[in-house]
Design a protein around this nucleic acid. Structure first.
Lengths: 117, 117
DNA sequence: AATAATACTGTATGACATACATTATTATGG
DNA sequence: CCATAATAATGTATGTCATACAGTATTATT
């Protein structure tokens, strides 16, 4: 049961991770700090989940990366590409619309309909 | 590009389909009418997506089904089980919390922050 | 000195939406 | 009356991606 609930929760947040990460890369950030800032925003994400995602986003040309070796530790900074910004804005709109629709569905037959506001 | 955007949109709505379907099965419904009512609520879902999902939900004991053969066409009605209702309420809460967090993220550095209200 | 934190790379697995194929009956339009 | 669409459903293979696991390495902290 607990496994099923966890599995369903994981599916719920699939896809939205991409949106969350893209939203944070409007300004350059490096991998480890992204984990921290997302965590601070309530979105727990492991390094083992984030780095493959960053790799994939770069492959899809949604972000680009560059190394900063001026500090004692080399850091790989990522930032949205122009294409990535386009895609991000489209996905943002899509997610907002979908969420409104789903919220309406969830609210049906429910008394606490303003819970989301 | 259009393929990538579509692929990302599909990922966005993964998982939420389960939530949408569970929300509609608080009262009994049959497959085909579910497609229609979800469509009416703005959630397009093909039969080829819905029936396997219903099959899976039944296997996971979140819903139960029964045949109604009194009409000219036999119909398989689905309804949430007690377990399914529990899971549904948990997922609903999870989704609402996640959505608020993501919305906050998306709103950062954005002027139109009340778009969601 | 040992452990934790900070940083990253690479890869296999499991879950699920989707697409495709199929069956079958009833309803509708020409 | 025939062809097509709509109404209903079953079954299965594929592609995608989050996750888990394994690994490397240096710096910071206890």
């Amino acid at each position: 049961m607990s496994n099923l609930l966890n599995s369903l929760k994981i599916e719920l947040r699939r896809g939205t991770l991409t949106l969350a990460v893209l939203s944070q890369l409007r300004t350059p950030q490096y991998g480890y700090s992204l984990v921290q800032s997302l965590e601070g925003a309530g979105i727990s994400i492991d390094q083992s989940t984030l780095y493959p995602l960053l790799r994939r986003l770069e492959k899809q040309e949604l972000v680009s990366s560059s190394w900063d070796t001026s500090e004692s530790r080399p850091r790989k900074y990522y930032v949205l590409s122009e294409f990535g910004l386009e895609i991000f804005l489209e996905l943002k709109e899509e997610w907002i619309n979908n969420s409104k629709e789903l919220y309406s569905l969830l609210g049906e037959g429910d008394e606490d309909e303003n819970e989301f506001n």
